[in-house]
Amino acid sequence: MGKKEVLLEVKNLEYSFDTYAGEVKAVRGVSFEVYKGEALAIVGESGCGKSVTMHAVMKLNPEPPGRLKGGKIIFDGKDITNYTDKEMQTIRGSEIGMIFQDPMTSLNPTMTIGKQIAEVILKHQDVAKAEAMKRAKEMLDIVGIPNADKRIHQYPHEFSGGMRQRAMIAIALALRPKLLIADEPTTALDVTIQAQILDLMKDLQKQFNTSIIIITHDLGVVADIADRVVVMYAGKIVERGTIDEIFYHPQHPYTWGLLRSVPRLDAKKKDRLVPIIGTPPDLFAPPIGCPFAARCDYAMKICYEAPPEETCESDTHNVTCWLKHPYAPKVTNPFEMGVAADE
């Protein structure tokens, strides 16, 4: 990787939603950083706060009911924590691009694709309309949309799901942003299209040296694209590390559970799946202890009573689990002895 420069730093972010029933603490003290040119994956089940975290960074959560309670967000050396919506607009699109799960709802149905790309360029740069359209066409070529000349004059409904996601990527990358945030970019797509889009993202990352944050619940996608992984659960980070550390030396029982629940098509025989039992907690009333305790095979008394602290496994690998405490009983890590070989 060479020397690492931090592009985005999120420090102790806390974010809540005020609902009829009370406060839902969606993000509860999340810290991580993204280096230049790397792909970071934020992994977790729905409702774990992974999307809320990134939307809080981009100021895309509706406020109210959303509310930033604490923490710092530093992007490219600037403290953007208290940026107004207007100030954010200068960053969104030009310095940070974003793609979403459902491209149909994030594209404007009454505008041609070409105009939508050109609009982003015109908004942030002082160029002529014709020049912007020319660049829009180039972007469509880059993201692998055939017949770009014709396609820029078409509307979103004339595009298929995969093509729409490509168009979204074209819009997001039109101004060569430093950071691309991809929120479940492939979840709504068919598998063969998912493979295309992941390949495209990898190519473009190399080509433009963009940093990527990919939000997903699918570890297969993570293995394909990420350099580093942050595992979130119930509004907190439970484990983070490089891709090899997370996949080959995972330390947190939740990470073990996630890894085991994914079926492997390359396995020789078909095993019974090992799910994570139970349901994630409702963050309206988060457990006082470790939020994963109620679903954890290794849960101890302490886990129900107090939240664990983050400990370091290596320079790049952190775990938040009571099993790391010196008093804790030794448990065999099912992944240190070869992937799920004990099943």
């Binding site: 598998v191 493979a195 295309q196 390949d199 297969g220 293995a223 394909d224 090899d244 390359d266």
Partner: peptide, 18 residues
């Protein structure tokens, strides 16, 4: 097309992309 949750395998693998 189904990604395999194993970065080393995934990086070596030749995908058939339709």
């Amino acid at each position: 097309a189904v990604p395999i949750p194993d970065p080393k395998v995934e990086k070596k693998r030749e995908r058939i992309i339709l």
